[in-house]
Design a protein around this nucleic acid. Structure first.
Length: 449
RNA sequence: CGGAGUAUAGCGCAGCCUGGUAGCGCACCUGCUUCGGGAGCAGGGGGUCGAGUGUUCGAAUCACUCUACUCCGACCA
């Protein structure tokens, strides 16, 4: 992408409505624009990050055996009357009427709709297990949206819904999502820790929240320090096998948010030097809900013995539009965002220090083409602007690597590479620059772990 | 929904108390000079001062009503 032809409205000062660092940086980096309380446009740079986050989620959902589809945002109230939630859901649900005065709603979630799809088509136990998911915009009319896209009213959500014959089957489905989530957050360059959550009226231990550790997180979390660097289940994990050992392994180490904290247990289960108090941002939630929807909505299949079986379900959410600020909260410095490679809008930016100078332009054009040929996501800053401005922009928008080229270096046949995260700079022959960046970027993509 | 604020150019702000027809920085446009960490000089464009009503000879400024947005709290992917 050539910056001169791109749309990147960066701001020197952050608009006053922004309170937390991720919100400020997303506004300053030209990633989002607020349109109303809790409602945002995703500008090109922000949209690229959101798409990368989505892609990783899709890859890991697919790997786990879940199947993607897409359901509408507007739903008929009738479905929600069936489950009883039309009246149970409060003001948070945005209710609208269509031209025929029919009651509609902007979906805050999709359990009813997916259950309707399931009961229409799935009739036999042989079709189970099944896990269907989609990534769609939701709306919850929060009393008080805040922190930018961290807590917006309209938000993007990946929600998966599993269907199984019985609780044992549903438990396996739960484990598959558990493992998929561990992998998903790791792949984004985050530390995502599963924490026992309140499972409400269902009870049991089948409700986990995943929290990203970040100093500015909204909730206090307490965990065993070994969880932070615990290796995730690898890419060749067999999702058709029994994953209970992985689940037990991870959940044997204590981790809880302040709401669920059992201080006595924290102290007895975790040695003192391993007790970690930190802050976390909730980015995912998985839980088993049994027959809560299948029962009233009559989602049943015929069993081997010819009898009708009410299916057991679970649902599994991840908030991509929240993950973007969560990554920023976990990774930034005074100069701006520091993107982990897997979700960076561009992996490398080429900075032409003297746009308009024929030799420098020619050398940059060549480099830019080579970056593309090497399979790198590259942003070429070809603007006619002072060097300082280009450096500041590159740092602000957080591209992991900067290749800096000006007449001075060009005369020596040298280019400079700056590592955004460490600030480290290296000077190397122009001809080696692309390969050097490629070798730095590739292992950090985490697409083969 | 309770409490507290804010609203003046794209962004950040001053002006309001003490009414006299709007200003600063950044951004934007033109020209020249610059060019390795958000450039310099000169010139220029852009605002029914959130909306409505009222008081007044005169309202960004005073009064009332409304709307939007933000913050703290209770609530949430």
């Amino acid at each position: 992408m050539r910056l001169s032809r791109y749309f990147l409205p960066v701001l020197k000062e952050s608009p006053k409505e922004a309170e937390i660092v991720s919100h400020k940086l997303m506004l300053r980096a030209g990633m989002i624009k607020q349109q109303a309380a809790g409602s945002y446009s995703w500008l090109p740079l922000g949209y690229r990050v959101l798409e990368k986050v989505k892609k990783i989620i899709e890859q890991e959902q697919d790997r786990s055996g879940a199947v993607e589809l897409l359901m509408p945002t507007l739903q008929s109230a009738d479905l929600w009357r069936e489950s009883g939630r039309y009246d149970a859901y409060g003001e948070e649900m945005l209710r609208v009427k269509d031209r025929h005065k029919r009651d509609m709603l902007y979906g805050p979630t999709n359990e009813e709709m997916i259950t309707d799809i399931f009961r229409t088509y799935v009739k036999s136990y042989r079709d189970l297990p099944l896990n269907l998911y989609h990534i769609q915009w939701k709306f919850r009319d929060e009393v008080r949206p805040r922190f930018g896209t961290m807590r917006s009213r309209e938000f993007l959500m990946k929600d998966a819904y599993s269907f199984d014959l019985d609780k044992d089957g549903a438990t396996q489905a739960f484990y598959r999502m558990f493992v998929a989530y561990l992998r998903t957050f790791h792949r984004m360059g985050l530390v995502g820790i599963p924490m026992r959550a309140d499972s409400g009226p269902i009870g049991g231990d089948m409700s986990y929240e995943f929290h990203v550790l970040a100093d500015t997180g909204e909730s206090a979390v307490f965990l065993h320090a070994d969880l932070v660097n615990k290796p995730i289940p690898p890419i060749d994990t067999d999702f058709r096998s029994d994953l209970s050992a992985i689940f037990k392994d991870w959940t044997s180490l204590y981790a809880a948010t302040d709401e669920m904290l059992d201080e006595a247990k924290f102290k007895t289960d975790v040695p003192e030097d391993k007790r970690l108090s930190a802050r976390g941002i909730e980015v995912g939630h998985i839980f088993y809900f049994g027959t809560k929807y299948s029962d009233p909505m009559k989602a049943t299949v015929t069993g081997p013995d010819g009898k009708e079986i009410t299916v057991h379900g679970g649902s599994y959410g991840i908030g991509p539009s929240r993950l973007v600020p969560a990554v920023i909260e976990a990774s930034h410095d005074d100069a701006g965002i520091v993107w982990p490679v897997p979700v960076a809008p561009f992996e490398v930016t080429l900075i032409n220090l003297k746009a308009g100078d024929a030799d420098t332009d020619a050398a940059c054009e060549k480099l830019y083409a080579e970056l593309g040929n090497a399979g790198l996501d590259a942003l070429y800053d070809d603007r006619d602007a002072p060097a300082g401005q280009k450096f500041a922009t590159a740092d602000l928008i957080g591209i992991p690597y900067q290749i800096i080229l000006g007449p001075r270096g060009l005369k020596e046949g040298q280019a400079e590479i700056k590592h955004r995260k460490t600030g480290e700079r290296e000077t190397l022959p122009l001809a080696d620059a692309v390969e050097r960046v490629r070798s730095l970027v590739e292992p950090q993509r985490r697409d083969k772990v």
